[in-house]
Simulated scan of single mutants.
Amino acid sequence: MNCLILDDDKNFSLKLKKDVEKFLDNIFSKYSIDIINENFNNIANYAKCNLIFVDIDLKESNGIDLVKKLQLLESNATIIYISSRQEFVFSSLSTTPFYFVRKQNYDGDIKDVFKLLKHYYEKTEKIITFDYYGRKTSIFLRDIHYIVSYGHDISIVTDNEIYTYRSTLKDIIEFIGSNIIVRVQKAYAVSLMFIKEVNGMNIILKDNTMIPMGKSYNKIFMIKYREYLIS
């Protein structure tokens, strides 16, 4: 989970960061929160962020314009506007934000945001929660690249980290309970969302990892993959 705060008010940014840390700490074991207080126009740097808090009325830039440019990069970031100027609420709707936090009503609005975000992550964005070194850990289903089995251990390979713990491939696939994760050989299961191409009996992932497919898994895999492509 990568979070970004864009606001030219440094004191407010730090307060918001502390509140966001408390919220994310109850959901994710790994996350980052960056603050930018100036030079806001490096849009490409924001593209991989999952959650962005942006002040609309920035001294150097217009927050809505920044978000529009970001969305042209096909970013899937959840956008939450923050502003002391409530008259911007309607103009912000053109970018379909998740919420609009009024700075003058910050305490109440931020509590509402966190309740809605938690519900959103649980229902809209499927989250996988498991025990990892004695602590509950959560990851997005969409962040999983593939899962590999090593004897009695499995490794879940994601965008930012590899989670290795004791389980079987069969058990973790059943635990995740999604048609997106498909077994392709005895030791590997892949995320259909992360496949770049299928070349014969080889599956090429978006990071160019190549995973050979087992013959006994080919038929079922191809059925599920075609269903995924047309869904």
Rank of each mutant, 00 (worst) to 15 (best):
E21I: 07
Y132P: 00
I33E: 01
D107G: 07
L51Y: 05
T158K: 01
Y225D: 02
I223W: 12
K126I: 12
I162D: 06
K10N: 12
P212G: 10
I172T: 05
N160Y: 15
G200N: 09
K59F: 13
K118A: 09
Y225P: 04
K126F: 08
D34M: 03
I162S: 05
F194H: 15
L229M: 11
G177C: 15
S61T: 11
E161M: 12
N39M: 06
V148K: 06
S29Q: 06
N39A: 06
F140T: 03
Y46K: 13
Y81L: 05
V148S: 03
T96A: 13
L229S: 03
R166T: 11
N76A: 10
I43S: 05
K206G: 14
S178T: 07
I27P: 01
G108T: 13
D207A: 15
D207W: 04
D65E: 13
I33L: 00
E174T: 15
L192F: 06
D55R: 05
V67D: 05
F53K: 04
F88A: 02
F88C: 02
N179V: 13
R135A: 10
T209E: 13
Y225C: 06
K22F: 12
T168Y: 09
L73G: 06
N42R: 13
I220Q: 15
H152T: 11
K224R: 10
I36F: 01
R142T: 11
D65C: 07
S191V: 11
I56A: 02
K68L: 14
D57V: 12
F88L: 03
S13R: 06
K18P: 09
K118H: 09
I110Q: 02
V101D: 00
S92F: 02
S138Q: 02
T129E: 01
L192S: 07
L192N: 04
I181R: 02
E21K: 10
R102S: 08
E38H: 06
V182E: 02
K219W: 10
N42W: 07
N199P: 07
F40A: 08
A187K: 14
K126Q: 09
D107Q: 09
D207G: 14
D34W: 03
L6S: 04
H152Q: 13
I35W: 00
T129R: 03
S191C: 06
I220E: 09
D34C: 02
E197S: 13
S216W: 10
I195A: 04
K118I: 09
Y81Q: 04
L72V: 14
T129I: 01
N76T: 09
A187Q: 15
R135C: 09
E174L: 09
S138L: 01
V184S: 01
K136Y: 14
V113A: 03
I35Q: 00
I56K: 05
F130T: 03
E125C: 06
V113L: 05
G177Y: 05
S231W: 01
D8L: 08
S216C: 07
L169C: 04
Y188T: 12
L6K: 08
I204G: 04
I211M: 07
Y46H: 11
K103Y: 06
N105G: 06
T164Q: 02
I64G: 04
Y150W: 10
A47V: 12
H119C: 13
E161Y: 13
I180M: 01
Y150R: 11
L229I: 15
S75Q: 07
S191F: 03
Q104T: 12
L73W: 07
L24V: 02
Q104E: 14
Y106V: 05
F53W: 05
